[in-house]
């Protein structure tokens, strides 16, 4: 962790473990300033004009690199991009100078109605053209590269023609955006749809991946079938840790976020998860150096 000196803010996001910043940890983080590499917030949680959340973020920004992670821009929607949403995001970017800005390959609204969920897209040429154009507009508006994240999905469309990893690769190639590779989401979607997460992970272009996400999922049984739900309410599962180690061995070390958004644990638990990611990153560095 780079300490604040002379009012200078810590700069880019290091290729180490970060944690999702949530309100229950504001105070403990500021008091103890633990040596975690960086923080990530949901952009929309800071869309207010003022208040304690922004004040805490301002205080913590002096000590940690920051990543803004959007959940509500609805990039894949066929509604027009919401100019007010973009303006608020642009204001946050200007104010907090994040090292990374990301959103999801998903949509959350249509006909002006917002579902506040990451809804799946059909992976077609039409969607590809649409998403590429929208990512381009967002990057132009923000004056910054966007990272696009692979979502967890619980359904696929029969008319999808492009595998998701290929779809993301192509959006990145055409729009110049980067990718946020959520290893847990690949695992969850793989189990839900019966594809091999390793095949998916190997198809993602290493040079485009600017960040990795890790989180816990829940397994719901439905009589004869099991569905994994991306709940972000528990530790990362062992099989996802294993995939993560393989992934960074291939990609090289990347900024890695521990996401934990519900049933939020004590800060120490979150830091222990981040420590585990940091140990895997250190092993990767040793192996690459050897």
């Amino acid at each position: 962790m780079a300490a604040a000196r002379n009012g200078e803010r810590p700069g880019p996001i290091p290729a180490s473990a970060g944690i999702g910043l949530r309100a229950p940890h504001y105070h403990a983080l500021l008091e103890t300033l633990p040596p975690v590499g960086w923080l990530e917030v949901h952009s929309e949680n800071y869309f207010g004009a003022g208040g304690p959340a922004l004040a805490y973020l301002e205080a913590l920004r002096a000590h940690y690199p920051l990543s803004l992670h959007g959940v509500g821009l609805s990039i894949g929607s066929t509604d027009p991009l919401d100019p007010e949403h973009l303006t608020r995001l642009a204001c946050l970017v200007e104010r907090f100078e994040p090292g990374l800005v990301s959103e999801h390959l998903a949509w959350g609204s249509v006909g002006g109605r917002h579902f506040h969920d990451l809804l799946p897209l059909p992976y077609t040429e039409e969607s590809l053209v649409h998403v590429t154009a929208r990512v381009g507009r967002v990057q132009d508006r923000l004056g910054q590269e966007l990272l696009l994240e692979n979502p967890s999905t619980y359904l696929r469309f029969t008319h999808s023609t492009i595998p998701e990893a290929e779809f993301l690769t192509e959006v990145a190639r055409r729009s110049g955006c980067g990718l946020l590779l959520d290893v847990n989401n690949v695992y969850v979607s793989g189990r839900n749809h019966g594809f091999d997460p390793r095949t998916y992970l190997q198809a993602v272009p290493a040079d485009r991946v600017g960040e990795v996400h890790l989180a816990g999922f829940a397994a719901n049984r439905h009589d004869d079938a099991e569905v994994l739900i991306d709940t972000h309410d528990r530790p990362v599962w062992p099989e996802v840790w294993a995939l993560y180690a393989e992934t960074v061995a291939r990609l090289g070390p990347r900024p890695t976020l521990i996401e934990w958004d519900a049933e939020i644990p004590p800060l120490a638990t979150l830091l222990a998860e981040a420590g585990r990611a940091d140990r895997i990153l250190a092993e990767t560095r040793r192996a690459l150096a050897a």
Binding site: T158, H159, G194
Partner: peptide, 25 residues
């Protein structure tokens, strides 16, 4: 008809999303 029902039927897949959105709101 547009939802792939392999492994779990479209009705139940939609139900998962309906529940998620409802729980969030």
């Amino acid at each position: 008809p547009w939802v792939d029902g392999a492994g779990l039927g479209p009705v139940r897949r939609l139900h998962l999303y309906r529940n998620n959105a409802r729980a969030t709101l």
